[in-house]
Computed example of a mutant assay.
Amino acid sequence: MRTTLASMARIALFALLSLLALSYLPSTFAQRNASKDQASLFKRIQSSSAGYIDIDASEFSTITSYPRDYAVTALLTTTDGRIKCPPCTAFQPEFDKLTAQWNRNRAVKGKNIFVKVEYSRGQSVFAQFQLQHAPVLYTFPAGATGKDMHSFDFTDRGFGAAEVASHLNSILGTRFSYKQPINRKLVVGSITGVITLVGAIFFIGPHISALFTSSKPIWMLLSIGSMIIFTSGHMWNSIRGAPYIAMGQGGKPEYFAGGFQNQYGVETQIVAAIYSLLAFSFIALTVLVPAQRDPTRQRAGVYVWSAIFLATFSLLFYVFRTKNPSYPFRLFF
């Protein structure tokens, strides 16, 4: 009897252990699969020429999960054009330069990796951290257990790659030195400008005095052209860095900014063209038409250029009324 009870106890114990082992197997396999996915993402990032990869919400959860022996810096942003985010657009080139240099530095390459999460692909990530703005830069430290993430403060430190590099060094204990890349376009443009200026002085220099004495029409056109360019808002665009064009409702291009204190680059060009046509029609009425000897041609010139002048002025009023519907004046349109 005692032998039977002992056998039954051993069988029950064996069955219990077997059940525990079976219940543990799925989680073990899940952890192994998650580890494989994480390792695969890590290899993709390490081999990326950009120094980072775009990921979705599921991949974000995989790459930031523990355990891992490297940190993860994630940029949560929106730069795909679906949502207007000027700060996101401004920071993206700096992020690209930083990640490319970081990934070329073997001393720090394996200690921290970079990922990018677009809002359109990772809305659940934004919801997870209750984010109402972008861009956001989080760094998740390495370790076997969860630790608090570190956030980069764009408001206090700006959008420069050097500041982000300093922030990462303080968190990770690294000595990564960020170097501002050479602006090749600026260098090429400067060299081209110098060569053009030297060539112009060499070839045109002997004839400069003649330009001042016998080229009155040229100087008139240059003076009128420069006045039109500057009165159209070219300097305002250069100082404020106004966008060239914007997308309105329904994805349609918007050529005129609302209000008298805003404008786009294309708007300046349109207004300059209108001013140019107005100036030329006025010159035609005061100079070209009176010079006609044939009365019929002179009369026709008056009619044609007067019609062009009035229609162009009406178009200018229409532009002002488009920018501000409360503008009280109009002519034909």
Score class of each variant (00 low, 15 high):
153 D>M: 06
21 A>M: 11
214 S>D: 11
41 L>H: 07
146 G>K: 12
3 T>G: 00
86 P>A: 09
138 Y>S: 03
192 T>Y: 02
32 R>T: 11
249 Q>H: 09
177 S>T: 14
165 A>D: 06
190 S>D: 03
284 A>L: 10
146 G>Q: 12
204 I>L: 15
248 G>R: 08
243 P>Q: 06
289 V>F: 06
196 T>G: 09
113 I>S: 04
185 K>I: 10
100 A>E: 12
326 S>E: 15
201 I>W: 12
84 K>P: 00
270 I>Q: 03
16 L>N: 07
191 I>C: 10
66 Y>S: 08
53 I>N: 04
271 V>R: 10
96 D>R: 10
221 L>R: 05
331 L>G: 07
142 A>E: 13
317 F>V: 06
132 Q>W: 06
82 R>H: 10
184 R>V: 15
297 R>V: 11
262 N>A: 12
164 V>K: 00
169 N>K: 05
187 V>Y: 07
159 F>G: 01
50 A>R: 11
158 G>P: 01
179 K>W: 02
113 I>A: 06
36 K>P: 00
278 L>V: 12
44 R>L: 14
239 I>C: 03
224 I>S: 13
111 K>C: 03
128 Q>Y: 10
328 P>K: 10
20 L>G: 13
136 V>L: 04
139 T>D: 04
34 A>C: 03
2 R>D: 13
49 S>I: 09
208 I>H: 03
195 I>V: 15
209 S>R: 13
103 N>L: 03
140 F>E: 01
26 P>G: 08
220 M>A: 12
252 K>V: 13
26 P>A: 08
245 I>Q: 08
302 V>C: 03
264 Y>G: 05
248 G>E: 08
74 A>D: 02
230 F>N: 07
2 R>M: 11
75 L>T: 02
39 A>C: 02
101 Q>T: 09
142 A>C: 03
221 L>E: 09
128 Q>V: 01
309 F>G: 01
213 T>Y: 02
157 R>G: 00
13 L>C: 12
141 P>Y: 04
210 A>K: 11
22 L>Y: 10
328 P>V: 12
237 N>Q: 05
304 V>A: 09
20 L>Y: 07
247 M>I: 15
211 L>D: 01
12 A>S: 13
229 I>K: 04
100 A>W: 02
193 G>Q: 05
188 V>W: 05
202 F>H: 09
321 R>V: 04
